[in-house]
């Protein structure tokens, strides 16, 4: 009886299939998927943007494993994703917890969120100026704090520190929204659980470790995947802030891809790089999901 009723409903619902799927499929197919698929086609071609592409098999791919700039860029991308993630997530969670428990929390939240209101490339351009040794204010701040060595350091001019500064600047710019997601997750943790734990004598860290964290873990996993997808394709902020320099220290796959396609007109090669980037994203995503499953995801 029950199954039959489902059968009728399902049949009714199936009539909705086409009208429900069609708008998304048409738009997605024409505007996202089709250009994406032609990227695969391009990757086996030698094409400079005009004229007929020439089939060259896997030459673009064998070229990229021998391309020292790309290999360096891949390492930098990994650094950006991993170091950025390790700064972003703990900080965002800390901000979420701290602003929730403190008075004036909303003011803090507003100020942490505020940088997102600045457009990405312009914010990057202005950070470049802030770090300028002659006209920026970062050196002045260190000097005022009495940190002479730091005030004369060329943060963006030294290959050893430039990438780290770019990571910090982009985390500064975007962290607010990640904090908001964690606030909402923490709000959903039933207060009774925390109170019970506190009555049992748990300290704040223990409450977080054993109550809050397991309950927000599921959402954290999704956010980590979002971060990986977003960070591994990052380029706008970096192009505007350092353009990949000094000496390639901040070149990531995204910026390299942009330069190959748009400055060098090496479309075929750029397509191959784009595909490798997609593979990297997929791999990182899968790995992070695996790791995530080992964690203690608790439904609530």
């Amino acid at each position: 009886m029950k199954t039959r009723r489902y059968g009728i409903i399902d049949r009714q619902k199936r009539r909705m299939l086409i009208p429900f799927l069609l708008p998304a499929l048409v738009l997605y197919g024409a505007i996202t998927l089709y250009p994406g698929i032609s990227t695969f086609y391009m990757s086996v071609m030698d094409w400079g943007g005009v004229g007929d592409p020439v089939f060259i098999g896997l030459d673009n791919f064998t070229r990229l494993v021998r391309d020292p700039t790309l290999i360096k860029a891949a390492g930098n991308t990994f650094f950006y994703v991993v170091v950025g993630g390790f700064i972003l997530f703990p900080l965002a969670i800390t901000f979420a917890l701290a602003t929730k428990s403190l008075r004036r929390g909303k003011l803090y939240r507003f100020l942490i969120l505020a940088p997102i209101a600045l457009s990405v490339t312009t914010a990057a351009l202005l950070w470049k100026f802030a770090f300028n040794p002659n006209f920026g204010f970062v050196g002045d701040v260190f000097a005022a704090l009495g940190l002479e060595a730091l005030s004369s350091w060329e943060w963006l001019g030294e290959p050893s520190t430039a990438l780290f500064i770019v990571v910090l600047a982009s985390v500064w710019h975007g962290i607010g929204i990640w904090m908001l997601f964690f606030i909402s997750a923490i709000e959903r943790v039933p207060p009774e659980l925390r109170e019970a734990a506190i009555l049992d004598g748990a300290n704040a860290f223990q409450v977080f470790r054993h109550i809050t964290f397991p309950l927000i873990w599921e959402m954290t996993r999704t956010l980590i995947i979002l971060w990986i997808i977003q960070a591994s394709q990052a380029f706008g902020f970096i192009i505007a802030m350092t353009n990949g320099g000094p000496l390639g220290a901040t070149e990531v796959i995204g910026t390299y891809l942009y330069k190959q396609a748009f400055v060098q007109f090496e479309y075929g090669y750029a397509a191959a790089v784009a595909i490798v980037l997609s593979l990297v994203v997929v791999t990182l995503t899968v790995i992070s999901r695996r790791i995530g499953r080992r964690g203690e995801g608790v439904e609530y």
Binding site: I31, T39, I229, A261, A274, V281
Partner: peptide
């Protein structure tokens, strides 16, 4: 589509 870089479009 999420993984495809938008470069191709």
């Amino acid at each position: 589509g999420m993984m495809l870089p938008a470069f191709g479009a």
